[in-house]
């Protein structure tokens, strides 16, 4: 019973923070709502027996990716942008299609899932760090190496994209005659 209660509390926070993220006028608030969302989804992962992924989620998403977002928002001063609706009726269409998608997915899930059987309890060692590590470095070695190459390329790409073309101005003062 406590499990159900926890799920519903988490679910309410997850949906609320997701809505808050989309609806906030201020991009900083959006980012903070998303951090909350990621943190609570990590709690759901812990509940689902995936502690390693939960910690990775907090470290990578909440701790690194969202900090990067906050950084960029603060540096660009892009907190508030005027929001006008360029295409007439886009908002209505999006809401209608979104509701339709939810209804379709609900029907599909209910039809497919059959009776509401609770999730089975996993073995004690399921998804322990050792378990995850062994799987990662045996069956998933190639994807792991590919991902590391992607990260390296992304790092170089980010540096090249943000580098300014002008040569750096000297701060020693010798050349600053202006």
């Amino acid at each position: 019973m406590a499990n159900y209660l926890m799920f519903f509390v988490f679910a309410v926070v997850v949906v609320g923070s997701a809505l808050g993220m989309v609806l906030s006028r201020n991009a900083i608030y959006s980012a903070l709502f998303l951090v909350l969302n990621f943190a609570v989804v990590a709690l759901l992962y812990v509940q689902l027996g995936a502690p390693f992924i939960a910690m990775a989620q907090v470290t990578v998403y909440a701790g690194a990716i969202m900090v990067l977002f906050l950084f960029v928002i603060m540096l660009l001063g892009a907190e508030q942008l005027s929001e006008e609706e360029p295409l007439p009726g886009q908002r209505v269409a999006a809401l209608l299609l979104g509701t339709g998608f939810i209804i379709a997915a609900t029907i599909l899930i209910v039809v497919q899932a059959g009776p509401a059987t609770p999730l089975p309890a996993p073995e004690a060692t399921f998804a322990s760090p050792m378990d995850v590590g062994t799987t990662l470095f045996t069956r998933y070695t190639l994807p792991f190496e590919v991902v590391s190459a992607i990260l390296l390329v992304a790092m170089i790409g980010a540096i090249v994209l943000t580098r300014s073309d002008r040569p750096r101005q000297s701060i020693t003062g010798a050349e600053r005659k202006d």
């Binding site: 900083i28 903070l32 951090v35 943190a39 502690p51 390693f52 939960a54 910690m55 990775a56 907090v58 470290t59 909440a62 701790g63 690194a64 900090v67 906050l70 950084f71 603060m74 322990s128 760090p129």
Partner: peptide, 25 residues
Amino acid sequence: DVNVGVLFILAVTSISVYGITLAGW
């Protein structure tokens, strides 16, 4: 005694950045 204790420390440390950034902003 969680089996991801060290990762927990790392995860929480990475969260603690927010307070300081937001205070500054």
